[in-house]
Design a protein around this nucleic acid. Sequence first.
DNA 1: TATGAATGAGCTTTCATTCAT
DNA 2: GATGAATGAAAGCTCATTCAT
Lengths: 205, 205, 205, 205
Amino acid sequence: MTALRTPKQQRSIQTRKRIMDAAFHLYAKKGIHGTNSKEIVEKAGVAIGSFYSYFKNKKTLLLEMLEDYLDRHYLAIWKPVEDITINEMGRDDIKVLIESVFAAYDISPEFHRQTHALRYSDPDINRVYERERNREVTQIRSLLESNKSRMRVTDPEAAAVVIHNAVENVAHTATFIGSQIEKQRLIDQLSDMIFIFLLHGSRSA
Amino acid sequence: MTALRTPKQQRSIQTRKRIMDAAFHLYAKKGIHGTNSKEIVEKAGVAIGSFYSYFKNKKTLLLEMLEDYLDRHYLAIWKPVEDITINEMGRDDIKVLIESVFAAYDISPEFHRQTHALRYSDPDINRVYERERNREVTQIRSLLESNKSRMRVTDPEAAAVVIHNAVENVAHTATFIGSQIEKQRLIDQLSDMIFIFLLHGSRSA
Amino acid sequence: MTALRTPKQQRSIQTRKRIMDAAFHLYAKKGIHGTNSKEIVEKAGVAIGSFYSYFKNKKTLLLEMLEDYLDRHYLAIWKPVEDITINEMGRDDIKVLIESVFAAYDISPEFHRQTHALRYSDPDINRVYERERNREVTQIRSLLESNKSRMRVTDPEAAAVVIHNAVENVAHTATFIGSQIEKQRLIDQLSDMIFIFLLHGSRSA
Amino acid sequence: MTALRTPKQQRSIQTRKRIMDAAFHLYAKKGIHGTNSKEIVEKAGVAIGSFYSYFKNKKTLLLEMLEDYLDRHYLAIWKPVEDITINEMGRDDIKVLIESVFAAYDISPEFHRQTHALRYSDPDINRVYERERNREVTQIRSLLESNKSRMRVTDPEAAAVVIHNAVENVAHTATFIGSQIEKQRLIDQLSDMIFIFLLHGSRSA
DNA sequence: TATGAATGAGCTTTCATTCAT
DNA sequence: GATGAATGAAAGCTCATTCAT
């Protein structure tokens, strides 16, 4: 097996990026299974051989794209709320965070939908998503720990998982499936639920 | 196009069922994409031609199997909790309901996982799952309405969606992805969260 | 993996044979590596799918063809000389046998050449050829044993191998490589060499 | 088409040799078809572009390697027996010669096996092997002619071909295919057969 | 009504070779 | 002289579906 090309020249980096961009758009538009390698390279304007110089196979390309995407997704959620890691988390912070999540789902809903669908049938994809989930649950948990004294929850580890799942799936469903109910109403209920769950009866409640 | 056979005779019904059973086991074992029609008919002990007498195509078979499965899934959840539709829903009722959901996910996790994965890439599968979701959200909502007077939530429609999503995704993740945390701890936190969200401060709280 | 079609209907048997015949001619004409599966099915007048119903892959087809061919090759050599297994082997018997070998190489020289070439790089092909070689060496050896009393050779087991190799390679080279020397002269020298080696000085010499 | 570089400088010659050495080891280890040009240049530590400066294509490289190899093979056989070209060839000389042949096959059995396999499907490879065969048959024949007076064979031209084929194929099979019988027993029988064939009844017998 | 033979579009990947830098 | 990025033809195989028997 020949080693993959490691981009050294400027041209290399461009070609690589062009392939990834082309794939990204096609996957979002026609679905991952509905897009074959020929279409990708045609859209990218390169030869099929180049594809396989840069990526071991289609799967590898997808995993790399997914990692890139989830990094952006993660940042979109946590960048705007860096400040609330202190011990003053309040009702509004929760809402802002949830709104960030909803916004993050709008970066590239189709790509997210497509890859997420593969999660349950493809262990490699699942592994990447799990890494992401762990990052997020960890963040939530450390938020709970920072505000421990004001919290009513007794099992912050499990609580973090439950909260993460709730937010993720509401955003997920609202984004991918749609709903007769406007997103804002869901966000409001979700924020309320989580706030009450975590802080009700505390000083700041 | 020959009209599909509508099974009226005993033998017909049996053949049909044998195909569905064969497919069910193979899908769970080898995955839907990893199972081809020939394997199904071989396991079922019928000819490939018969398959296409009973089902328009593989997709039709899958949709029908999924409807059957989701009916069982639905009953497994709601049968055990028929009584709490009255206006006395309490902490324990919520927990029992959530435990029913977790149990329902264990009826046939692999088939569930396989089909759920297709939800976001296949509109027909999604439609069936949406029908199911609507049933469930409706049930939750009517539960909320029955206990309206004791509730603190102001938007029961959105609340029902949020609750449904939270429970579904926690059960989903616990079942399909696994978790370092035991199911019972998740169920406890989830019950607590929902109870507080719905009823905290009410008479019965 | 789906089981291969086992021919039950008349049509099946015909199709199978048509594929093998087409492959046989193409392999002889264009070389095994120079013939792709599409060409075979086109020549056979069947669809590519049929090919893979009857043969697991191209390799399997080749092995089956080779076994058939070597059976014919073996019979062509030994059928004409069935009678000399008795203890009267003489100069003429040896010559007749060698002539049978040369004739056997003319059944389908190109196919023989093509497959033999693969022997040293393909273990499966080699295995089939080895099975053939063992049959032939065994035959020679039992011939030597039947005439043991009149033989001068002390190690009939090794002698049988040496004789087989000599005859095979002379026929082989004469057939496939050609030679400036006419076959008959080679046959004469070969017969002489083997006769002298085995029987010189004996009563019948 | 750029003219091929004719190596005049020291560095050029070294690069050329490094490519040939790399190819030689890889061909022996992974097979000719199993080795691609990228692997060769990587092992040689040069760029793919350089490869095509020194060799018109992969085939040219192979032919050149084969010629080198067969020169070594030829010398290994005939160097040790230069003296017996005189008219005194005896039983032991034959044995020594045959042992040289067996030894020559052990110089690089894998490369020999690989290239020989191509002989019957590739005319260019065959041509190089034929050139070698002619050299060897000519040597044998001149040996026979030198000892003509003591020989019993009437057709030394055909006899030389027959002897060459016999020795070559026994060595070939023993080396590449293996055998239940030890090489020495084959050598003994072979020597005996050829000696009897050539000289039996002569003074020196 | 049942059978199973036949169909063929469709897709991934390899690798020798070229040529701009 | 040397590099390595880019090329693209070529080929094996799968599988849902049809339809003659």
